[in-house]
Design a protein around this nucleic acid. Structure first.
Lengths: 234, 234
DNA sequence: GCAAAAGTGTTGCTAATACACCCATGC
DNA sequence: GCATGGGTGTATTAGCAACACTTTTGC
């Protein structure tokens, strides 16, 4: 066996999350977690759905590679991107040895609608996934677990929303991700106490009720979350 | 430039933590966090201290590689081992492109004393490190941050201790890692409430005071911490 | 006995919860 | 008006920190 071919390859993949409402149903429903997947067109796993990704280029950072590959396949620009885990089991890819550095990302709902879907790229519901290629079911499970964990103790839920948003919208993100209803009053107080939000002058009107104040995310804080690693250092 | 040489290499390194008392001082002192480092014997960074590690073999899992390389250089067998992060900045290694999958580990104090130190391997204090090779200072900082974060919300402190231990010993681990004194009474209650500990029949005697009950870690729980990833899947 | 750490009890503060209530808007 | 969600107030509860106190050992 050739020594060069023995060297493990490096690939970078990304689990991209967005909150979307199921278009198939006519009655209004709360959004759920969806992710764009790519249909493989060659073996192994020809015809299976897989995470967007690709090989790491020689002069390209890990996060850069994640951003590039997900943009190439989906056209999306994520609002949040973080390294998830390196998957490197010996036989996770039939025939070859591939170590995948996996990232996870969030895109806002508006951006998600701009994604170029088609025969080869499609949104699938995170909790009704078919059997995916490679170990990608495990990867998505872990990414979901991380998302749910992080959203409780961190201030990242806004990454699913636009520049400004109402407290109701932010609460809905939390409710969908954490899979349980939250008291509007208590949620408001927690957010106000956390210093994560800055009220704007605007309000969102719609529906037959009092208009809701629009808030903006307070970017002056987020340094705390990832410790010594800034968001860049991949 | 040759295409084969352009492909990024994969290395696996490990930040190994142990609690040790400084041998140089005669007066008894509380332990602090130490880690074994390897002195490099060739460029780049010839003569600098670096994390134990090495290239990933073709038919070897990531965690296996971490376990192997740290054992080869230090002789240690860690009680806890977890993936930390993949570091892959383009120019983190002069001349070559290396992506390092870094693990972090804890060894119990007794095991730490069995480590084979010498000219090339030495224990250094985690908060008084010199300038290390590559980006290893950043890596150690991040590992420390992770250790300190995880020890508060998780049940891993026992990994610094032997099979059985007193509440005082466990509390000392927390105090050293979290860098602050803890109330013995409240600490006891928290541990008892957490179900993480199982009391044994034994007691530890020593010093002129009442013997302390020995506890054992309750292994029936730990599944929760890492979510869908069991400790094996690297 | 006395020092020192093991172990127990009590109190008060803070934060999270549950839920009652008023406010402002669209229809 | 009236339904609906926006927004405020408040009582109850759970958890945690502080600290006084009792117990049991070595010397």
């Amino acid at each position: 066996m050739d020594v060069e071919d023995d060297r493990p390859e490096i690939a970078v993949s990304t689990v991209i999350f967005a909150l979307r409402t199921n278009e198939r149903t006519s009655t209004p429903q709360p959004p759920t977690i969806w992710l764009p997947l790519v249909c493989r067109v060659r073996d192994p796993y020809d015809g299976s759905w897989a995470l967007p990704g690709g090989p790491l280029r020689a002069r390209e950072g890990l996060a850069d590679a994640a951003r590039r590959t997900l943009h190439e396949t989906t056209g999306l620009t994520p609002k949040y991107l973080e390294q998830l885990y390196a998957f490197g089991d010996v036989d996770r890819s039939p025939g070859r040895r591939v170590v995948s550095i996996v990232y996870w990302a969030m895109v806002e709902s508006e951006e998600a609608q701009r994604a170029k879907v088609g025969q080869n790229v499609r949104w699938l519901s995170a909790d009704r996934l078919p059997r995916l290629a490679f170990d990608h079911n495990l990867i998505v499970s872990y990414a979901l677990w991380r998302l749910r964990n992080k959203v409780e103790h961190s201030r990242i839920a806004h990454a699913f929303l636009g520049e400004t948003f109402t407290l109701r919208e932010l609460r809905e993100v939390h409710e969908v991700v954490r899979q349980k209803g939250l008291d509007p009053a208590n949620f408001r107080r927690q957010m106000e106490a956390s210093d994560a939000l800055v009220p704007t002058d605007g309000t969102r009107t719609g529906g037959r009720h009092r208009p809701a104040r629009l808030y903006r995310y307070n970017h002056a804080i987020e340094l705390v979350d990832s410790g010594p690693l800034s968001t860049s250092s991949g």
